[in-house]
Each structure stands twice: as structure tokens, then as C-alpha cells.
């Protein structure tokens, strides 16, 4: 049937049931509570799965305790949910694995991330934990931008990157912490080598 021939139906808009928006309640590890729309939650794969699994009704949301997010503090969670509300309904980007990965930081996100590096660090951990792909993209882009025009010495300071010697020392310390006997065996081996022994056993 062509569009022209389709029957015209009068619609009584008032009769269409308006879906009530559902707001979930979340609580940070420092007991701050947030109300977040169902659509905003969809930006977080982790939270979206969680609320789907819980199958809450509107009454449950109001009557049951807020959903606890144990490892994120209120200040960080506020930023996360502000971001999710602003970007609710937007498509979640699919990573095609390209390098360089092209990401633009929108004005809203730039303002939201006008924060100190400590909070930015927590925001990235939160976005990673809650699996919010685009928030991770823009926050990582902000960190990548810190490298712009830097010399190696400046970049080492900006990212607190250890030298080869520091990496080696950290690796040795980690090994020793894991197995103190390994160090003793290594020292014994070195001692025998110094004494001219070819075989340890």
C-alpha cells in the first residue's frame, strides 16, 4: 500500500499512556545519594546490567535502599552522573581499534573535566569500573592532551614515569615481597658463582 492510500487515523494523544520516567537511587562510598534517570544509566554498561538484573519497579526504587557503589566517592560519582544525564540517549561508540583514536572533547565535557588531576584520575577509574565508554574516551583524551609539545624530560614529570632503573628496582622489590626465599636463593647462587662453581646443584 502506498503512503498516499494509507488510512488516516485520528489519534487521541491524551489516550496514549505516557511512560513514567524512572529514577534510580545510588549511594557513593561516602554515603552521598544520587537519583539518576533510567536513560542516563544506559551510558554505563555495568549499571545498566545491574538495574536490569534487579528488575526494580518504580515503587521498589522508592522503597528499597539506594544501590551502593562501594568504590567510588560522592564527588566523583556526581561528575559521572552529571555526564550520563547530559549524554543520555546518545549512541555508545564502538571502538574500531584504530590508532590514533580520534576523539573530540565537547564543550560540556571540557567544562565538567575542568578539575584537578587527582579528581580526573578518580573519574577515569570510575568510568572504567562503570564501563562508560564515551566518558572513558574523553577523560583519556584529556590525559593524552597533557603530552602536547612536551620534551621527554617534561613528559616524564607530567606522567610520573619511572626510568628503566626504577622499573627494575620496583620489579625486584615486588619479587622479594612475593617470595623472600627467592632472594636468598639468588644470593646463594651469586656467591657460588663468585667461588667458581659451575653448578648450583
Amino acid at each position: 500500500m502506498s503512503v498516499e492510500n494509507a488510512p488516516v487515523v485520528d489519534v487521541d494523544e491524551a489516550a496514549i499512556p505516557v511512560e513514567k520516567k524512572m529514577y534510580y537511587r545510588f549511594e557513593s562510598n561516602d554515603k552521598k545519594e544520587f537519583r539518576v534517570s533510567e536513560l542516563a544509566i544506559q551510558q554505563s554498561e555495568t549499571l545498566n546490567r545491574l538495574v536490569e538484573a534487579m528488575g526494580y519497579t518504580s515503587e521498589d526504587v522508592e522503597n528499597k535502599p539506594a544501590i551502593a557503589i562501594e568504590n567510588i566517592d560522592g564527588k566523583t560519582l556526581k561528575l559521572v552522573f552529571q555526564w550520563c544525564e547530559h549524554h543520555k540517549g546518545e549512541a555508545i561508540p564502538v571502538d574500531d581499534g584504530s590508532v590514533p583514536k580520534i576523539v573530540e572533547i565537547p564543550e560540556f565535557d571540557a567544562k565538567l573535566m575542568d578539575i584537578d588531576n587527582g579528581l580526573l584520575f578518580k573519574l577515569i577509574w570510575a568510568a572504567d569500573y562503570l564501563n562508560i565508554v564515551q566518558l572513558l574516551n574523553v577523560s583519556c583524551k584529556k590525559v593524552a592532551n597533557m603530552a602536547q609539545g612536551k620534551t621527554p624530560a617534561q613528559l616524564r614529570r607530567v606522567y610520573l614515569l619511572p626510568s628503566d632503573e626504577e622499573d627494575e628496582a620496583a620489579k625486584r622489590a615486588a619479587q622479594e615481597a612475593q617470595d623472600p626465599r627467592a632472594r636468598e636463593v639468588e644470593e646463594e647462587f651469586e656467591e657460588r658463582k663468585r667461588q667458581g662453581g659451575n653448578s648450583f646443584f
Binding site: 584520575f121 572504567d128 606522567y159 614515569l161
Partner: peptide
Amino acid sequence: AFPLTRLPASSVENVLRMM
């Protein structure tokens, strides 16, 4: 300073991919 190496490994990779 920003402690890049203390981010999750996947996020460090993400940062590098955007450089």
C-alpha cells in the same frame, strides 16, 4: 603531575592510542 601508570592497563592503552 598525573600518575599515568596507576590507571587501569586498558585506560593507559586508551590514552596512548589518542596521542
